[in-house]
């Protein structure tokens, strides 16, 4: 009997930003789905925590700071050929437009957008993305669901959506797909600390028809897009948000 198209059995999958949040959860769920995962992140200790939660054997971990382009080049050099890539590295800062600076724009765009574009460029140049492979970018509902203080983050994710579509077209001749997932609010380390208060979180939660999501709600979407089940899905933007953008 043919195995399910939703499996990631024997696929080699790179997951960036795997030391915490959605990236960590994505790595763990991908390993459960049968993938050999290569996880990257900037924090050795937290990356080890993720690594120790992976199921099965044959996984590896590489320290990589996405705010440093040299690290990205080195990463591309040492990686094996890949069947799938989930780009989960991301940072955010809540700051009104009146206070944004060149420095903040550079910092957020570098990690959320530039690093991912450069990594894909290097991997393509080195011919390390296998035919029929898949690329998944973690975007955000903020691309068109505005929230005060979220302009730079939203702009970086909007650019990611556009990049993914062009990439999808360029790579179609190799049957490589490129898609984005736009998560709604999933409480993780990145978002739980910062300027948002507990009270504001509770208020926010009430707006979500299905409540807040869990990291694996997003990870399962990533698995679908990485699996053969989604081989005809490319250039799409999948919103997984508990219904928040319905209203």
């Amino acid at each position: 009997m043919r195995e399910s198209d939703f499996s990631l059995n024997s696929k080699v999958i790179l997951i960036t930003g795997a030391s915490s949040g959605l990236g960590a959860s994505t790595a763990i769920e991908c390993s459960k789905a049968g993938a050999k995962v290569i996880i990257t992140g900037r924090d050795q200790e937290r990356l080890d925590i993720t690594f120790n939660q992976l199921h099965g054997n044959g996984h590896s971990k590489i320290i990589c700071d996405f705010s440093v382009n040299e690290d990205i080049n080195k990463l591309a050099e040492v990686l094996p050929n890949l069947d799938g890539i989930a780009l989960c590295a991301g940072i955010t800062k809540t700051i009104p437009v009146k206070f944004i600076s060149n420095e903040t724009i550079d910092e957020i765009f570098q990690v959320n957008l530039v690093s991912s574009m450069l990594l894909i460029q290097r991997l393509l140049k080195l011919k390390k993305i296998n035919k029929s492979g898949s690329i998944v970018f973690i975007s955000s509902i903020s691309t068109d669901y505005a929230d005060k203080g979220n302009a730079i983050y939203a702009a970086s994710k909007g650019a990611l959506n556009s990049f993914s579509k062009v990439l999808a077209l360029e790579l179609s001749s190799k049957n490589i797909t490129s898609n984005c997932i736009q998560p709604g609010f999933v409480p993780t380390g990145m978002l739980a600390v910062g300027v948002v208060s507990e009270e504001q979180l509770l208020e926010e939660k009430k707006k979500y028809p299905l409540g807040f999501g869990e990291p694996r709600d997003i990870a399962n979407g990533v698995i679908y897009l990485l699996s053969d089940a989604a081989k005809w899905v490319t250039g799409s933007v999948l919103t997984i948000d508990g219904g928040i953008t319905l209203r």
Binding site: T94, I95, P96, K98, F99, K148, G149, V195, Q200
Partner: peptide, 9 residues
Amino acid sequence: SLVALSIIA
């Protein structure tokens, strides 16, 4: 909320 964010910033 925007004034609050502005004060924080």
